[in-house]
């Protein structure tokens, strides 16, 4: 179970997609198909492309040997097994509910935070201090991964989506931003009565 009711992820387009995937499993590319053969192929393609474009990063990660990480986007019903080095490196999606294979460590955060970490747009310690990022397991392996990734110049748009027309990327980014902004407004509005009540109690 990647969504933990004791620590819900923030309201975001990713969370809505994740919730839709939970309640609408018959729709193509939603629900379990997120971890199906198509998703597996796409994940491995993305991993292979990053490996080709960031040779120095993967050289630094060679010290990890066979150690793997369970990467858990808390707002999606899918997790990923990441093995950056070893005999068979790669990235594999695991459907929610399926038992994950053994991993040295688990990293759990909303997808946006995980992507920001990957691209060096967020600081891992800051996410950890604010509990947006949860880590369990082999901390040495986590630091090797975090520090190496932070030192690399990964830009997913450039590294993975270079063949897509720039206009498509710009539109997608704008739509995501618009929906995200609306959801933040909804979340603030939903909290407003509670915030007012707290303000009345506190002098």
């Amino acid at each position: 179970m990647s969504l933990d009711p004791t620590d819900p992820p923030p309201l975001s387009p990713v969370l809505l997609a994740g919730l839709a995937a939970r309640v609408l499993p018959p729709l193509p590319l939603l629900g379990r198909p997120l971890a199906g053969p198509v998703a597996a192929r796409l994940s491995q393609m993305a991993f292979d492309r990053l490996q080709r474009r960031h040779e120095a990063l993967f050289q630094r990660l060679a010290v990890l040997g066979e150690r793997a990480f369970l990467v858990d986007p808390s707002d999606l019903p899918v997790r990923f097994l990441l093995r950056p080095a070893g005999v068979r490196p790669g990235l594999w999606p695991i459907a929610d509910g399926d038992a994950p294979p053994p991993a040295a460590a688990t990293l759990r955060a909303p997808l946006a935070a995980l992507l920001a970490l990957l691209e060096g747009r967020a600081d891992g310690d800051s996410l950890f201090f604010s509990r947006q990022l949860m880590i369990e397991g082999d901390m040495e392996a986590v630091l090797v991964l975090r520090n190496a990734v932070d030192g690399a110049d990964i830009t997913l748009e450039r590294d993975l989506a270079a063949r897509l027309p720039r206009r498509v990327l710009t539109m997608a980014r704008r739509w995501y931003g618009d929906i995200d902004g609306l959801l933040h407004l909804v979340a603030r509005a939903a909290w407003q009565p509670a915030a007012l009540a707290v303000a009345e109690v506190q002098p």
Binding site: L117, R121, D123, G124, D125, S126, R146
Partner: peptide
């Protein structure tokens, strides 16, 4: 020095 480049930049 143990922090990420986002921290350093900010």
């Amino acid at each position: 020095r143990q922090r990420g480049r986002a921290y350093v930049a900010r």
